[in-house]
Design a protein around this nucleic acid. Structure first.
Length: 734
DNA sequence: CTGGGTATTCTTACTTTCGC
DNA sequence: GCGAAAGTAAGAATACCCAG
């Protein structure tokens, strides 16, 4: 080490200032820990550091860190050395190598991106009838070697196809360019291919939400702070397989990085500034913009969605994301890093960070605080503008802006995806550093029902911004929630016991939505979708007298507004949000279908004018009107609601899409009752009613049938359906 | 072509260590 | 003592591959 040398033209006992304005985090086990700075600042926290310094002799160097030799040799030479020469630890831009290397072919696991899904679906649909074969995937692999053909095939058959035709159609409709198509079909313009890369990269970046905007950029740059344990680094590695060689990312480099064989391997553009449609980040951005504009209108404030700062135009969405990525209180935001995350070069004058700060305070603080207030105190809505915020809030995941869903979720990520129910809320806490250990002796009190209702209200209110409604209902039917399509062949209703057993591991009824979400890849928009489109059955009490456990606490039609003061509703019988009732003035007084749908058979009469509970009626009407307003025919809406036992939301939409597309009623979806299901259930009940009069064989069959229904629809689902059919029958008799 | 196994990746939930 | 980094373990998801 050469402390004390003259550096960079400045002689000083401290070793010059070649690292002036650069902050270091130095791992504790670095031998030169005490002597490293040379004009820079050594900060105690990784997150506050521009450069992570670790010991190259250790194998556990944080991802994206650099050897202490970078500093010492820079000091020795009086000039900052090329940083990448000193990179140690796992390269965040490269996937970890696999332990076993004796395997041919790919040795790493590469996550599928949304654009890849789109491309795959398009490709497969183009070769429709042989999607179960190998050839089309082998061809596809030739043009898209990012995954093996087996993986492409797996992806389609196990992940995409089970989500249903509607989902496939939707994917195929998406404008997202394909990563690549086999040569014989690849006749797209080069610009399109570039779009692929960009789009793909963006989506990957999106999946890295919420930490992504800042972190993934830092990961690319490889010169900044990084949570060593964060998988974001690894996730960000998906965004680029090329070794990072420069702290800055340029399009030119991106172009160079792409080999013809791997057009879909993108250089990650700025995850913040990139623009591509139809991906999750865009969806969130659109919602954000809509919301903040709504907020601006409510409070009478002009909101500038984009402001010129320095050499760039900064959007509020990007700014909020960059700030949010730091997960600190707004007063503690490191605006230098925000600037960096937004793609600014280092600004020694500090002008840009200052302007960013001002912009944030002028435009975003109030809005975000209002949102936070709503989040934290669902009922403490005070100002008029809070109504709109409430509406906005009610239909999205908590902390969408303040703390984007965990990629888990998130996102995403992707993510989705995927976290335990208890973790959902974590996004709301500005989580800094390690998690606190829970005291095992402490009993966590259940969340008051009032809060649950006020914060997780699943309404799709008419007051919700159009963007959200569009998001919720725009035909998206991705099976990220609610019920997952069962993996059995569509035709198979007579399940083997093995299959039944398999179902038991998969099937959950809508009340367990959140845990189900964790099992599928969940993008932010999907999560938004799922949370807004509740899959709770409408607690229809068609026949008041018969209502046992089915009966909801019937009240006279209550005035609009959150019903937070009501008694607890059971999970399977939550009331409709108050907003359902606001649509009471719908002209169509009688939502009863004029005729049964083509496939409903005996079970099409969903909504009877005799429904005894006005709340129920209004709730049903609301949804019927709602879905009709979205373009579904009355018949389809009614049938879908019938098939799903009056469960609005994802399930119902899925059925509607299926019916609309001429696919009939999905046969193997939990919560979607086919004619056969109903028939079997009726037969089971009849057999039970017959009691000893029925012969042993019939009883055994009934038991088996019932078990199959339970496996498919869960016990609660069967009970609910049973009551529903009973009520319906009674009404039809009358 | 299918079903299933393997290994990697990712996330969470801790405990331990270290520096202030 | 406190807070943060470092370390560990477990579990879930799933990309990838292979045998039948």
């Amino acid at each position: 080490m050469a402390a004390g040398i003259t550096y960079d033209g400045v002689a000083s006992a401290e070793g010059g200032n070649i690292f002036k304005d650069v902050s270091f985090w130095v791992a504790r086990r670095v031998p030169m820990r005490d002597s490293i700075n040379n004009g820079g600042t050594v900060v105690p926290l990784e997150k506050n550091a521009d450069i992570l310094i670790a010991d190259h002799a250790r194998k556990d160097a944080p991802a994206g860190s650099y050897s202490w030799k970078f500093v010492t040799e820079s000091v020795e030479n009086g000039i900052i050395q090329i940083k990448d020469r000193y990179r140690i630890g796992p390269d965040p831009d490269l996937p970890r190598t696999v332990g076993s290397t004796d395997r041919p072919g790919k040795a790493t696991r590469t996550r599928f991106t949304h654009s890849e899904d789109v491309a795959l679906v398009k490709w497969v649909l183009r070769h429709g009838e042989h999607f179960a074969g190998n050839k089309i995937y082998q061809e596809f692999e030739r043009a898209n070697p990012r995954h093996t053909w087996q993986s492409w095939r797996d992806r389609f058959t196990k992940m995409l196809q089970p989500r249903g035709q509607a989902h496939l159609d939707e994917l195929a409709r998406e404008a997202t360019p394909e990563p690549a198509v086999p040569a014989e079909e690849a006749q797209r313009a080069p610009s399109e291919a570039a779009g692929d890369a960009q789009n793909s990269a963006h989506q990957k970046a999106s999946r890295a939400t919420p930490k992504s905007p800042a972190q993934s950029k830092r990961n690319q740059a490889g010169s900044h702070k990084q949570d060593p344990r964060s998988s974001v680094a690894t996730r960000a590695s998906e965004t680029s397989r090329e070794p990072s060689t420069s702290p800055t990312t340029t399009p030119a480099k991106s172009a160079l990085a792409h080999t013809p064989e791997k057009p879909e391997e993108p250089e990650p553009p700025s995850p913040i500034a990139d623009t591509s449609e139809e991906d999750e980040m865009d969806t969130m951005a659109r919602i954000f913009i809509n919301d903040i504009l709504t907020y601006g209108e409510e409070v009478g404030k002009d909101i500038d969605l984009a402001t010129r700062i320095g050499e760039k135009i900064v959007g509020l969405w990007e700014l909020s994301q960059a700030v949010e990525a730091q997960k600190v209180h707004p007063d503690e935001v490191d605006w230098l890093k925000v600037a960096e995350d937004l793609g600014y070069d280092f600004d020694p004058t500090g002008e840009v960070p200052k302007e960013l700060c001002d912009c944030y305070r002028d435009n975003l603080v109030d809005f975000l605080e209002a949102m936070a207030d709503y989040d934290s105190g669902g009922e403490e809505i005070k100002s008029g503008s809070d109504l709109s915020i409430a509406a906005l809030r009610a239909s999205r995941s908590p902390g969408l802006f303040l703390s984007p869903p965990s990629p888990s979720k998130p996102a995403s990520h992707e993510t989705a995806t995927k976290k335990r129910t208890a973790d959902i809320d974590q996004s709301n806490s500005s989580r800094k550093g390690k998690r606190r250990r829970l005291d095992p002796t402490v009993e966590i009190p259940s969340t008051p029902e009032e809060e649950l209702q006020s914060t997780k209200k699943p309404l799709v209110s008419q007051t919700v911004s159009p963007s959200i409604r569009e998001t919720l209902t725009g035909g998206r039917s991705q099976s990220t929630n609610g019920s997952r399509r069962l993996m059995s062949p569509p035709h198979d209703e007579g399940l083997t016991e093995d299959e039944d057993a398999a179902f038991e591991t998969q099937v959950r009824y809508p009340p367990t939505l959140q845990t189900q979400e964790s099992s599928v890849e969940v993008t932010p928009s999907q999560q938004l979708h799922s949370e807004a489109m509740d899959v709770t059955p409408i607690p229809l009490d068609l026949q008041k007298k018969t209502g046992t456990s089915k009966k909801m606490p019937t009240t006279s039609p209550s005035p609009p507004g959150p019903q937070v003061d009501k008694k607890k509703a059971k999970a399977a019988k939550r009331r409709l949000p108050a907003a359902f009732r606001e649509s009471d003035d719908t002209p169509s007084a009688n939502p009863t279908p004029s005729s049964p749908g083509p496939q409903t058979g005996s079970s099409a009469q969903t909504h009877s004018p005799k429904a005894s509970s006005k709340d129920d009626q209004l709730g049903i009407r609301y949804w019927v009107d709602h879905y009709q307003a979205l373009g579904y025919s009355h018949k389809i809406v009614v049938e879908a609601m019938d098939r799903t036992t009056l469960t609005p939301g994802f399930l119902a939409v899925t059925v509607m899409n299926s019916l609309r597309d001429g696919q009939g009623v999905p046969k193997d979806w939990e919560g979607v009752w086919t004619d056969r299901d109903d028939t079997v259930l009726r037969r089971v009940d009849a057999s039970k009613a017959a009691g000893s009069a029925a012969n042993a064989k019939a009883i055994r069959k009934a038991q088996k049938d019932e078990q199959r229904l339970r496996n498919k629809h869960t016990e609660d689902g069967v009970a609910l359906r049973r009551q529903y059919l009973k009520d319906k029958d009674s009404i039809e008799k009358e």
